[in-house]
């Protein structure tokens, strides 16, 4: 089905549908089958170099954890700066396109480090996080965050802001802040579980 049939909010509708489908899957019985079939993969993760290093040297694991936090800080910083500018809270003398586009390249680097360090950490405690519901919530939040960011937010922000409905821009900025806060908060929650 062409996206154009969904009107001007086709990407938003598709993203919302994907997130709703992921949530429905998470809460359904089908999830139990899929979850069971992934156990072998998580056991394999612990046998990889990342898994062995993470389990053997606690110091390396802690340093990678620290860089995960630092990259999350940079990622959060780029989101805060961009969205606060879109909301007109600060940096109002600079065009929102300039702030958003320049912050985006830093965001991508931070996201790469977040993902790399996240995979390393997951390998070290793979069979533990496998049984933690909050780990799957975090993955769901991260997937939703990346889908929202690259599929809705950036295409929207690449347009001329003066041609866009200010209400849509505000809603997008607030949604972006909330989704990345959710990613960070669920990540922190993993530390308290298990």
């Amino acid at each position: 089905m062409p996206i154009s049939l969904l009107g001007p909010y086709g990407r938003s509708i598709i993203t919302a549908a994907v997130i709703a489908a992921m949530l429905a899957f998470t809460l359904s019985y089908a999830n139990e089958y899929a979850h069971g079939s992934l156990l072998g993969f998580f056991e394999w993760m612990e046998t990889t170099w990342f898994g062995i290093i993470g389990k053997t040297w606690g110091g390396v694991f802690a340093i990678i954890q620290a860089f995960h936090l630092l990259s999350m800080a940079v990622l959060g910083g780029t989101i805060l700066v961009s969205e606060f500018r879109v909301l007109g809270i600060f940096l109002n003398e600079i065009s929102p396109q300039t702030v958003v586009q320049r912050a985006h390249s830093t965001f991508v680097w931070a996201l790469v480090v977040v993902l790399f360090t996240g995979v390393f950490m997951a390998c070290g405690v793979a069979t533990k996080v496998y049984y933690l519901p909050v780990f799957w919530y975090k993955m769901l939040a991260l997937g939703a965050g990346m889908l929202f960011h690259f599929y809705i937010r950036m295409p929207l922000y690449s347009n001329d802001f003066s041609q866009l409905n200010p209400r849509v821009l505000q809603m997008t900025a607030i949604a972006s802040l909330l989704v990345w806060f959710l990613v960070a908060a669920t990540g922190r929650w993993i530390g308290f579980s298990g």
Partner: peptide, 25 residues
């Protein structure tokens, strides 16, 4: 979680000075 606000802002200022983030701001 406040790291994202405090260090997030601080690192962007530092990276701007190094020319690695928002160089034309």
């Amino acid at each position: 979680l406040t790291l994202m606000l405090s260090l997030g802002m601080l690192f962007l200022i530092d990276l701007r000075m190094l020319g690695w983030a928002l160089p034309d701001v």
